[in-house]
């Protein structure tokens, strides 16, 4: 299964290389977009020294963690949000006649290797922040756990977005609010948002576990919203629950298609 997935990635990469100019432009564009994200954070700190009580390097740490998880999913899973266009053009049928799961085929669909540059950029920001902060190394184990949790959460969100498109065939953009919107939200310390928003992304859509809750643990800080200590460690459980919900939704989506046709 994993081998099939990577083989599909390789296939799409070679297909994309058939258009070298577009290939180069996408690379450039990806890099510029990522650079602007960091620039925004640096601009904010040119005017203030802290953001919701967090120093520049702490904010970069939180940003880097979310960005790393997000860009990995954006590269390897996000292609699934083209489901609706496959339904409209009828190409979904060609995926369904193959002896490989539709999820594998669709997450690899038209894979863009050029997005790898953004993963590297996110990793650099995170790496810089970790070094600059001089973190307590006994808490460092949480960093990979946090990134993995983030990957599962964003991957699940995209799967949900893909599943929703089986129903929202005519308005595929609606689901972008959840995927890209969630990322925008988790780029900054949640301390800058209102209490109700933070409650929502802790207990309903578990975005707080992408970087905020585990990040507080790594940084050795208390939650300004006063959540108990154990919530710092609840990330993996929350991610698993979300992944399960996403898997069920995806199954329902495919089943819905097979029972409605198009």
């Amino acid at each position: 299964m994993v081998r099939t997935y990577f083989l599909l990635l390789w296939t799409w990469t070679r297909a994309a290389a058939a258009y070298p100019a577009s290939f180069a432009l996408m690379n450039l564009l990806g890099f510029v977009t990522a650079a602007i994200d960091v620039a925004v954070i640096l601009v904010i700190f040119a005017n203030t020294t802290t953001l919701a009580g967090f120093s520049r390097d702490e904010v970069l740490f939180l940003y880097g963690a979310a960005a790393l998880a997000f860009t990995i999913c954006d590269t390897f899973v996000s292609n699934i949000d083209r489901v609706s266009s496959h339904i409209r053009t009828g190409t979904l049928d060609t995926f369904l006649i193959r002896p490989v799961s539709a999820w594998i085929q669709l997450t690899a669909d038209r894979f863009q290797i050029t997005r790898l540059g953004r993963i590297l950029q996110a990793a650099l920001v995170l790496g810089y922040a970790i070094t600059a902060l001089g973190l307590d190394w006994r808490r460092g184990w949480m960093i990979p756990v946090m990134v993995l949790t983030g990957i599962v959460i964003f991957g699940a969100l995209w799967t949900l977005a893909g599943a929703a498109q089986f129903v929202l065939t005519d308005a595929p953009e609606v689901v972008n609010a959840f995927t890209y919107g969630s990322y925008q939200l988790s780029q900054y310390p949640l301390g800058i948002y209102a209490r109700d928003v933070v409650r929502g992304v802790t207990y309903v859509l578990p975005l707080a576990f992408v970087n905020w809750q585990p990040g507080l643990y790594v940084l050795g800080r208390d939650d300004p919203f006063g959540t108990p200590e154990y919530t710092r460690f609840a990330g993996p459980a929350a991610a698993l629950v979300l992944a399960l919900v996403a898997a069920l939704a995806w199954r329902q989506g495919v089943r819905h298609y097979r029972s409605t046709g198009s």
Partner: peptide, 8 residues
């Protein structure tokens, strides 16, 4: 519709 990879 084709099931082949268009650009390969």
């Amino acid at each position: 519709r084709t099931t082949l990879w268009w650009d390969l």
